[in-house]
């Protein structure tokens, strides 16, 4: 099974492995995602209608309103955060967003993640080492038992245990 390894800068520690959701378009937080489900709602975004919950979100970074971190923070509290984040363009919105999301995050990779990773590929993100390991979908889908890494799903369940789900709620910020 062929794997591709990219190395960069680890931002938030921990290890997660999940399917990738890839977009070359920056993501708006407030007014661009619905944190209860992790769905992209920006009308003209190429991922509109799709959810990043439990996925390795591979994207350029954050745009739009200052409510970016608040939306991803809320998504974490209700259990809809991405499993990990891989991005290319640093700004304050994405920096604060990955910090409060508490999921492994990596940037400054030594290869173009948009060339290497396609939606559906399995990606293992090691935020402590700053590495990602990509297994192409056409490879792992023939594999009857793909490896699962550190079990992000179990952690997510633990996160949401005993908490009530809620929407973004009035007062989230533009």
């Amino acid at each position: 099974m062929s794997e591709i390894v990219l190395t960069g800068r680890g931002l938030v520690g921990g290890v997660a492995e999940a399917e990738a959701l890839v977009t070359r378009h920056a993501i708006s937080g407030w007014g661009g995602v619905e944190p209860r489900t992790g769905r992209i709602i920006e009308s003209r975004h190429e991922l509109v209608g799709q959810s990043f919950a439990g996925k390795v979100l591979v994207f350029p970074g954050a745009k739009g309103s200052s409510g970016w971190s608040g939306m991803f923070h809320m998504a974490r509290l209700v259990g809809s955060a991405p499993a990990a984040m891989v991005f290319t363009v640093m700004n304050t919105k994405i920096a604060l967003g990955v910090v409060v999301s508490h999921v492994p995050a990596v940037t400054d990779l030594d290869g173009d993640p948009f060339e290497v990773i396609r939606t559906g590929d399995r990606v293992r993100v090691d935020g402590d080492r700053g590495t990602i390991i990509v297994t192409r979908a056409d490879t792992y889908r023939r594999d009857p038992e793909p490896s699962r890494g550190h079990g992000w799903a179990a952690e997510q369940e633990q996160d949401t245990d005993g908490r009530r789900c809620a929407g973004p709620g009035p007062g989230e910020h533009g």
Binding site: G67, G70, M74, L77, V78, R163, R164, C165, A166, G167, P168, G169, P170, G171, E172, H173
Partner: peptide, 13 residues
């Protein structure tokens, strides 16, 4: 900043 909270914020704490 923005620190006005209603039920949706308090319920997830």
């Amino acid at each position: 900043g923005a620190n006005l909270f209603g039920s949706r914020h308090s319920l997830v704490c």
